[in-house]
């Protein structure tokens, strides 16, 4: 089981994690704005996540934490 945490307040909605995800299970939350006015990234299907950390490694703002059972 994978736990993926996105620090939404720090996210700038750049979408690089969305592009990096090989499983295509990240997207920018279209109907959500954080305090800075960005659409933060969100996980769509944690069951499909393989914890490769491509998203976290690509994130320029170090907002993603990944843990695994």
């Amino acid at each position: 089981m994978v736990k993926l945490t996105i620090d939404e307040g720090r996210c700038k909605g750049c979408g690089l994690c969305v592009r990096a995800c090989p499983k295509k299970i990240l997207e920018l939350a279209k109907n959500k704005l954080n305090e800075k006015g960005y659409h933060p990234a969100q996980m769509m299907d944690i069951e499909a996540c393989v914890a490769c950390a491509s998203c976290a490694r690509t994130c320029p703002d170090a907002v993603i934490t990944i843990e695994k059972e």
Partner: peptide
């Protein structure tokens, strides 16, 4: 599996998105 290193401070980077 992955978390922010403590050798980066907690300050929010001023850089543009992406």
């Amino acid at each position: 599996v992955f978390k922010k290193t403590p050798v980066l401070t907690d300050a929010i980077l001023h850089y543009c998105p992406g």
